[in-house]
Design a protein around this nucleic acid. Structure first.
Lengths: 301, 301
DNA sequence: TGCATGTTTCAGGGAAACTGAAGTTGAGTG
DNA sequence: CACTCAACTTCAGTTTCCCTGAAACATGCA
């Protein structure tokens, strides 16, 4: 059996013209390299060098060098690729996130992440929670950052943080000047516009309000435009209300259960790719900072 | 250190979907393959399979397979190339031979030689002895079949056979009907045409005759045409007189020293390429047959 | 639950590669 | 022509590490 290391020893010796220097490079003793070459010659059935002094190749030696040189370069390149990928330094990472996370949390994290990984390719896609989960299930993304679904459906959720929901209304709205956090009963009769972030909210008082809602808007920009036009009011996670159009204000809600949970979602039973695992690590490390910065509650049980 | 055999084990397991069958192919026990995979995973720093049942790859596993599959094919192809070359089954063999050897000895030998070596490329070049030696020295051919030069000049000669020289003359020539082998003195006064095969003949009687010669012709066909036209007579090795034009006859010479020596010539101090060595072996094996067929004396000391 | 199939773990054996020292070879030099 | 030096080979002893076989462990199926 011809060992790859024997071929490498041969090439190194040809490159240096003698065994001594090659042995140094290979971190072996002279005798080890000598014996390795001898064994290689025995396996091939002919001498590789014209004399003991390893300066001149035989025809066979020249041929082997021609073939093995490129082979070893291929070999080294392949192993580098593999280890780079295995250590999360290269490869493609596809992230799907809800817009608020994509806009506020990810830029900071991704910046340092890509800086350390010039080889890596990263795709970021923002959409609503339901689409994030669908993309994961269809294998169209590696990671999701969104609200976890109620029941287990082939996804695994790692809790990241909770984000308090706030009431969003026109500045001229009567409740806009209410000094205290709003209780549910204060919202009775409001023209509530539903949106995707509210689908996970199970509080009975809210469900009663939601049942009376006439309007549902999926896109955040459209939703805020509606509020700005005073066509109604809505409830949104705090993160999503960082950049409001003029004339739109927010009021906190009194119900402490009224929170959006944001999880990191991965496909259940699938080991994440190394670069995904590296990103998860970095994200979890960065989370305390983010939580403090945006006033989020870190984790839940 | 990632062993090539570990990569091969991994690919084989993915191909069979389980360790047991792969172990059979690899001529190892289950546990050996299992431990090899485990070691590979440890070296990469992550799992290659989703579960103990080796049916589903992780992302990392799929990536490694993508990279390693082609790598191993390259590797195997390269080793095949090398061993094929080392065993003399492939490669290029350039032979330079004097015309008589090229025409009479080589066809039979080369026929079986190339049949056994569909991968090999063989170039045959015929020219006179001096050119054969020059081609060898310039590295333009691997083997020469010709008369050895007098002094050692960077070539090594392996004696093959001796070929008795014969007198060649027109059928109407007085000596053509001489029943006994010719002695040198009988040739005195003949219009001897010199040729390249006579340059190595050192017998004093012949040298005296040669000194009186007016004509020297290099090409065999031209030489025989001269004799056919009765423009003179000449001396040639027996092998070169196998196909004479009509009207031209040969007579044996009495001097037993009057022989052309044919050697196999190679460059001194250079190991012949494996395919050249294989050809030399085959030629030496076939020689007794040839010697008998053409009435040559096999070898000399 | 028990069985069949397949994998991992573990201790022990053995092959193969490595080391260090001594021996050999070959080129250059007075 | 012997001497010297550098480079390589050989050899015995050691170490490393891969492999085997047995037993324990998982997983799916009747």
């Amino acid at each position: 059996m011809i060992r790859t290391e024997a071929l490498r020893a041969f090439v190194t010796v040809t490159e240096h013209g003698n065994i001594r220097d090659a042995a140094e490079i290979l971190c072996r003793t002279q005798s080890a390299v000598s014996m390795t070459l001898k064994q290689l010659e025995a396996e091939l059935g002919g001498p590789l060098f014209e004399s003991d002094r390893k300066s001149k190749l035989t025809d066979l030696g020249a041929f082997v060098l021609d073939v093995v040189g490129p082979l070893l370069r291929e070999h080294d390149r392949a192993l580098e690729l593999i280890t780079g990928y295995a250590q999360g330094y290269s490869g493609r990472l596809r992230i799907a996130a809800v817009p608020s996370v994509a806009a506020l949390i990810l830029p900071t994290v991704l910046k340092t992440f890509v800086q350390a990984r010039p080889e890596a390719e990263i795709d970021l896609y923002d959409t609503d929670s339901a689409s994030v989960r669908e993309m994961l299930l269809r294998g169209e993304t590696d990671l999701g950052l969104a609200s976890p679904a109620g029941e287990a459906d082939g996804l695994r959720a790692i809790p990241l943080f909770t984000d308090p929901l706030v009431f969003v209304c026109h500045a001229a709205h009567p409740l806009a000047s209410e000094p205290r956090p709003l209780a549910w009963h204060q919202l009775t009769g409001e023209r509530l516009i539903l949106n995707e972030t509210l689908s996970g909210l199970a509080t009975p008082e809210f469900r009663t309000l939601a049942a009376q809602a006439r309007l549902s808007v999926r896109n955040l920009t459209s939703l805020l435009a509606m509020v700005q036009a005073d066509a109604g009011d809505t409830i949104l996670p705090g993160l999503a209300t960082r950049a409001l159009p003029s004339g739109v204000v927010t009021r906190p809600l009194a119900d402490p259960a009224c929170q959006r949970r944001v999880s990191l979602l991965v496909r259940d039973g699938r080991t994440p790719s190394p670069i995904a695992a590296a990103f998860i690590d970095m994200l979890c490390d960065a989370l305390p900072n983010m939580a403090q910065r945006f006033g989020l509650s870190e984790r839940w049980t």
